[in-house]
Structures are given as C-alpha cells and as structure tokens.
Simulated assay, not measured.
Amino acid sequence: MTYLNCMADLWLFDSLNETEKGDIRKLFHRPEYLKGEYLFNEGEPASSIFLVTQGRVKLLKTSEGGKEIALGYITPNQLFGEEVLFDDSVHSFAAVAVEDTRLCACYKSDFESLLAQNSQLSLKVIKGLGEKIRRITEQFADVAIYDTRSSLSRTLVRLAREHGQETADGMKLNFRLTHDDLGALVGSSRVMITNVMKSLKIAGIVRDDLDHKMVISRWFLNEPFIEEPASPAARSADCDCYQR
C-alpha cells in the first residue's frame, strides 16, 4: 500500500519540479463521506484517484453468491485508484467509508487536460511510468517466489502494523477477517488459508482473542524478513491535501 503525505508525492510525479507539482496540486478537490456511504460501487466507471486524509475506507468485492469479501482497508496517508490515470476501466471492487472520511481526489479528465497542455510534463510522467513498470515486474517475481504460508504471514504482519492495536504479547487487528477475506488478500483458496492458519497458530505466530480478532505475536513482528511500511512524515497536515 502506498503511503503519501501529499498526492503530489505520488511516484508518478517524482521527476517534476516544485512548479510542476504546484500545477498538479491545483487539480485536487476534497470530498467528504459519512460512515456507511459508498465512494463508488463495483462495476461503475473509474474516474478519480483518491488519497485518504481522515477516516478509513474499506475495499470490498461481491462474490457470485452475493457475499461481500473485504479486500483491504485504506487509512490516512494511503492512496488508491491510481490505475485509473492510465486505463479506461470500471471499478473491479467497491469502496465504502467505515467511519466519517475526508479525501483528496483528482479527476482523470483534469489530469489528462493538464498533460495535453504541457508536453514536457507529459514526458516526465511517461518516464516515471516506465520506472514503475520495472518495479512491478520485480514484484511479480517476488510473488512467484513466496508460498502461501509466507505470503499470508507477511500480509498479516503488514495488516497488524497498519491497523493493529498494542497488546501484551503482540498486535491485535482492530477488525475481523474471515478465511475468505484472507484468501482474497493473498490470492489463495479458503481451504488453503484454513490449513495455513492452523500451522501459524501451532507455531505461536497467530492467536484469536476473546472477541475473535487475530493477534500477531510480538516476536514474529520483529522478524527481519518482514518489510516495514513507509511511515508518513509528521508534517503531512501542512500539505494542501489536508486543508479544508
């Protein structure tokens, strides 16, 4: 998950100077959503990129049987939907505010108009896109390397660090996840997730709390192979994205 202090810090704009980033910032608008309100539904045309500045958003998908599956949670300083800038697509999932939420958003149409007016800016953006494609190729190679147990372990640690609450022996997720939810997060079947979860509990890596929320053991959180997520800088509120 991408962590940003301002949408102008998106990887796509890394090569831009401050004046050019200022032009990007002028495109932003700041919608607000109440708890339970949908930002968009699955199947709707994708038209915006979003940065959460306050609150929390749940990404979910509906199965053929009508069951909602949680794909993940977006919290402040996290970005989602950036693929819309390069693809005329529809949303493959829905997004709903799980608490009152404020966003910084940019319409695809506004972004395209700016690029059409500035050829040098367009070239810099294309260069940034090429670098991103290279990194994505490397990430696909990583997916091929890790088995389900490793992928699930790494996912649980990241969830704990992003959305966890300190306990005496580890980090407790502040929401419940079913085995179907976990399978969706790591691209595996519910049966496989069930078997892997049994082995993780036997190994003392994961346990269920009294309210059936998972606790990730402290010793495992300190394993060196788990990457720390990028931490937002303390002065993120100074950015225009975070101003009303």
Rank of each mutant, 00 (worst) to 15 (best):
Y3C: 10
L4A: 04
L10K: 05
E18Q: 13
E20F: 01
E20D: 10
I24A: 00
R25F: 00
K26R: 09
F28T: 06
G43T: 02
A46T: 01
A46D: 06
V52K: 00
K61H: 15
S63R: 13
G65E: 13
K67V: 14
G72F: 06
I74Y: 05
L85W: 04
F86V: 12
V90K: 06
F93L: 10
F93C: 08
A94E: 08
A95C: 04
T101P: 04
S109H: 13
F111E: 04
L114V: 07
A116D: 14
N118R: 09
V125N: 02
L129A: 11
I133S: 10
I133M: 11
I136N: 12
A141P: 00
A141V: 12
D142L: 15
D147Q: 03
S151G: 03
S153C: 13
T155R: 15
V157I: 06
R158L: 15
L159D: 06
A160F: 08
R161M: 13
T167A: 04
V186Y: 06
V191P: 00
I193K: 03
V196W: 06
M197P: 07
S199M: 08
I202R: 09
A203E: 15
D208V: 10
D209F: 07
D209W: 02
D211Q: 04
H212G: 11
M214T: 00
F220Q: 06
F220W: 14
L221F: 01
P224R: 08
P232Y: 01
C239N: 10
Y242I: 07
